[in-house]
Design a protein around this nucleic acid. Structure first.
Length: 735
DNA sequence: CGCTGTCAGCGGTAT
DNA sequence: ACCGCTGACAGCGAT
């Protein structure tokens, strides 16, 4: 496997096919184009925070611009390193599941299941108890579901959910929510009439997910796949509901207290789009230590922590004599006076003691009692069972939100009663992290340090900012694997460069939203082009993948901070280029990333099509982005548009001599990032860009990868690369 | 900007 | 019926 890798000019790097550069002819060598001082203005960042820096590798350099770090490839560092398979989604996650000799192995909940509303009844675990523990079925199931095309509506038979798909028009109301899941009360306050469109739309989406992925969720035990899908679709739906909610906000008198997170969560819970419904002590299949979440509801959906608010999850477990409550998991989120400074020890406060049952803001306190969660923790101390710990931290990117980090298994070592600030007694529990688990909190704290220390003593740091200030944020360059000092030299540019304008087939006038484009503004031409929706949520998340995203651009009158210009705002996430174990250089993030976040665009030089057509078989460029390749759509709701990207013209980009962080993103067959063509409104020119977004939530220090795609018809000179992504879905090779 | 108050919400357990 | 380490936002005071 690996020897073939060594032949590449830049070994280990996921090189692009040099062939697929369209069905074309020669083109011996592209004349390198270096940004000139005059051209730089068009690339300046909107905020003007960081000046655009450009320089030819050899200079001369504009005043104030220091020479770019001289990258070079050292010959001896090229040897591919050992077969260290990187598991997606984990910093040094060994794939070895965390197994302990747990005396309480087969815990079964007292009330394992409440019967879901009629239609979901068949998802009850009882029906699957025969299938033993789902773990062994993993590989089989995965191959299956992959082959299963989306929105195949034929499977509905046993579900009773007819794939009534998006009936384009919203026949709101009526009793039609009948039989389905009228169980939850969706009568939010005085909401009425205007809610029609969203409601129906949402129901159809959920039905579609279920019918398309029904097999994925039909097991009491989860796995990586079912957890991944549940989370991905959950947030997709949540973003969609957010988008729909926003539109009706314009309507006077409408309540603004819609909670898309709860709404999406209830739908999923009721429909059975969830995993690990059997509650258990210890590790949860498919959830890895270090995984992150942004809503409490997500913890419920994957079976990590059931209460939607409560900090302690527990369940009755048969003892020799009786049922006793045992603690399953806790969320430490700052609500009480916990002590969290140590990465391996957590002092957790018991629950209760907040007087005044109705109004929680009543400041008076009471003594806590040894009941509910407190009692369970006490019992768990004596039974010495594993307790899952989820740490709730402040989310840097979203000050109002929190990020929940699964920190693995702990044991309770001691308990005592303390006096809280109010003078009332509070139960305290000392939890100690089990050894042998991947580091999580330690890494988060290190990253915090790296951000504040300018002169960090971090091992393997080569450059604090390889962009030399070209981006809003520095991008560090790190190698803690071998002696290589950096990737081959290239010029850092922060955006795409067209050598000559591409004419537009239809002219674009741009929008006239002086104050910025707002959802529900049916007059905005840009919103119209996006099917009537603003494609981003208020905090800048892409709602869903679309064949072609229309952003505002030069010909629009909206300001640079318009919500419909997300991909133009430069980096928002702290990234770092690092040396991977066996795939050359790669890209990863310091910040936790929310699903739908914009990461970066693919910067480089747009190749002239007519020139590319001259291309022969031996054109050497490992940094080609070819927008004409096909990819399985990702981050798309079944029933939504599942079309593959629709680019107005065959865009091919080379980041060989000049590019940005995107050129370091490796290929994976189970990517956590997808790309999306973005067309910016620009008078008579076609201002097409390629932007990257997160498929799901991505923990810090996880390698960012996207699917390089497939070539429709392989040519003789096209060379496949051996794929080392390590995914269970791996196609073994890529272009 | 950061803190605090507000309040509708939900799955779950207890009764 | 009751409980609770939500989450988004409005309103406030400090910087």
């Amino acid at each position: 496997m690996e020897q073939s890798l060594g032949q590449d000019s830049v070994p280990g790097f996921g090189s692009f096919d040099k062939s697929r550069v369209l069905d074309v002819r020669p083109l011996r060598r592209l004349v390198p184009v270096f940004p000139s001082a005059s051209s730089s203005s068009s690339f300046s960042t909107p905020q003007g925070a960081a000046p655009f820096v450009c320089a030819s590798p050899a200079g001369p350099f504009p005043p104030g611009v220091s020479p770019f770090f001289p990258f070079y490839i050292s010959a001896e560092s090229q040897r591919p390193s050992e077969q260290n398979q990187q598991t997606p989604g984990g910093v040094g996650n060994q794939n070895t599941p965390f197994v302990f000799n747990n005396p309480i192995s087969n815990a079964v909940p007292i009330n394992s299941f409440r019967t879901p509303p009629s239609s979901t009844a068949r998802v009850t675990p009882n029906q699957y108890t025969g299938s033993s523990n789902g773990d062994t079925t993993q590989s089989r199931r995965i191959t299956r579901s992959r082959a299963q095309p989306q929105s195949q509506s034929g499977i509905a038979e046993e579900d009773g959910f007819n794939t009534s798909v998006t009936d384009g028009e919203n026949t709101r109301k009526g009793g039609r929510s009948k039989g389905k899941f009228q169980s939850h009360k969706r009568t939010r306050g005085g909401q009425d009439i205007n809610v029609a469109l969203p409601d129906v739309d949402v129901d159809a989406i959920v039905d579609n997910i279920l019918t398309s992925y029904t097999d994925t969720f039909r097991h009491a035990d989860g796995n990586k796949e079912s957890v991944g899908y549940a989370l991905m679709f959950y947030d997709l739906l949540r973003r969609r509901i957010t988008q729909l909610e926003e539109m009706k906000e314009k309507i006077p008198g409408a309540s603004r207290t819609g909670r898309p997170d709860l709404r999406a969560g209830t739908l999923f819970m009721n429909k059975g789009i969830r995993t690990n419904t059997k509650r258990r002590i210890g590790a949860v299949p498919g959830v890895e230590v270090g995984d992150i979440f942004f809503f409490r509801m997500e913890l419920c959906l994957v079976g990590l922590h059931a209460p939607t608010m409560g900090g302690i999850d527990y369940m009755g477990v048969k003892n020799s004599t009786e049922d006793e409550p045992l603690a399953l998991s806790i969320v430490s989120s700052g609500g009480y006076e916990d002590s969290v400074e140590d990465a391996n020890v957590l002092i957790y406060s018991g629950q209760g003691g907040n007087a005044s049952n109705d109004n929680r803001n009543n400041r008076e306190m009471k003594d806590q009692k040894l009941e509910r969660g407190n009692l369970a923790l006490e019992k768990s101390l004596h039974r010495s069972n594993d307790v899952r710990v989820i740490r709730g931290l402040k989310d840097v990117s979203n000050p109002t939100g929190k990020v929940y980090v699964y920190d693995g298994l702990y044991k309770i070592h001691e308990s005592w009663v303390d006096k809280g600030k109010s003078g009332c007694s509070v139960f305290k529990y000392k939890l100690v992290r089990l050894p042998g688990q991947p580091e999580v909190f330690t890494i988060w704290k290190s990253i915090e340090q790296w951000k504040v220390e300018t002169t960090t003593t971090r091992v393997g740091l080569i450059l604090p900012d390889l962009t030399s200030g070209a981006e809003n944020l520095p991008v560090s360059l790190v190698n803690d694997v071998d002696g290589e000092k950096g990737p081959a030299h290239f010029t850092y540019i922060s955006s795409l460069q067209y050598s000559k304008p591409v004419n537009l087939t239809e002219s674009s006038a741009g929008c006239t939203c002086i104050g910025g484009c707002l959802p529900g503004n049916s007059n905005c031409s840009c919103i119209k082009k996006n099917g009537g929706f603003l494609p981003y949520t208020a905090n800048g998340l892409l709602v869903n993948q679309t064949p072609l995203l229309h952003e505002c651009g030069l010909s629009c009158q909206c300001p640079s901070n318009c919500r419909n210009r997300v991909s133009q705002g430069g980096l928002k996430i702290r990234l770092e280029v690092f040396k991977t174990k066996d795939k050359g250089w790669g890209l990863r993030s310091w910040d936790p990333i929310r699903a739908g976040s914009f990461l970066c665009e693919y910067a480089g030089q747009v190749l002239n099509i007519s020139g590319v057509e001259e291309l022969g078989g031996d054109y050497e460029d490992d940094y080609i982005f070819d927008a004409t390749r096909t990819c399985e759509p990702l981050g798309v709701l079944p029933g939504d548009s599942t079309e593959t990207p629709k680019v107005p013209f065959p865009l091919i980009i080379s980041a060989n001599t000049a590019g940005n962080v995107a050129r370091f993103m490796n290929h994976s067959c189970s990517p956590n990032v997808f790309w999306q063509p973005v067309l910016r409104e620009n008078k008579n020119e076609s201002d097409l860009h390629i932007a990257f977004y997160a498929v799901g939530h991505i923990p810090p220090m996880t390698e960012l990868t996207y699917d390089y795609g497939l070539v429709p018809h392989e040519k003789a000179y096209q060379r496949k690369k051996v794929c080392l992504c390590g995914s269970v879905k791996c196609r073994d090779s890529f272009y």
